[in-house]
Design a protein around this nucleic acid. Sequence first.
DNA 1: CTTGACCATCGCAAAGATACGATATACGAT
DNA 2: ATCGTATATCGTATCTTTGCGATGGTCAAG
Lengths: 104, 104
Amino acid sequence: MVLAKKEDFPEKDIKLADWCKALSHPARITILRLLASKNECMCGELVLDLPLAQSTVSQHLKALKAAGLIQGEIEGMKSKYCMNKKNIDKFFKLINQFNYHLND
Amino acid sequence: MVLAKKEDFPEKDIKLADWCKALSHPARITILRLLASKNECMCGELVLDLPLAQSTVSQHLKALKAAGLIQGEIEGMKSKYCMNKKNIDKFFKLINQFNYHLND
DNA sequence: CTTGACCATCGCAAAGATACGATATACGAT
DNA sequence: ATCGTATATCGTATCTTTGCGATGGTCAAG
């Protein structure tokens, strides 16, 4: 079976790779920046600040949410998104631990 | 033109996204760990330590090299790979700067 | 109850990533 | 010169990502 190989690696490395993948597109990095600067944000605002169609932005939001880096709640007609600080912290902790490993 | 959209983002975010993409597969994370632990390493050793075919490992090495995270030199019949510490440092500096941004 | 605004999801197309075996290259040893 | 070892690259199959427009659902306002 092709592509089952990722699972043959340590859990921790898979998790780190997953988070890195979530950040592997400039749109998603920009989205995180925007969410940070506005604290929380509706999808429509993000669309205005990105050179992408609404459906595409929605997809990127879904990816970030699946990775656990952001949270979204539907509030009335609008959807509010915000950072998932707990997981973002975990990510940076993990990546700095990785850095430490590389230099030891 | 589909997929020209990445270029519509700030240079710095594109660079960060590229480096994250280089780390978005557990095999490549493992390769960096191995290179760090052995300081420098021939391709064959890496193949022994990874659950992947030789050609696949070679491809992952190529990706890491293209991203500038490792260096490789052909020494006689063998290829020696090592970390590109300068760029790895740049990466961690950039990502921690990003973290700082998110929390400010 | 219709309309408009907002958003997620579907369906599609193009491109990229991942994996492997087979092949080509380069060199040391015989 | 031939052989064996070490690697890179090619060709190919499959899966994933990225992007868009179109569609559908949900609520507020009229």
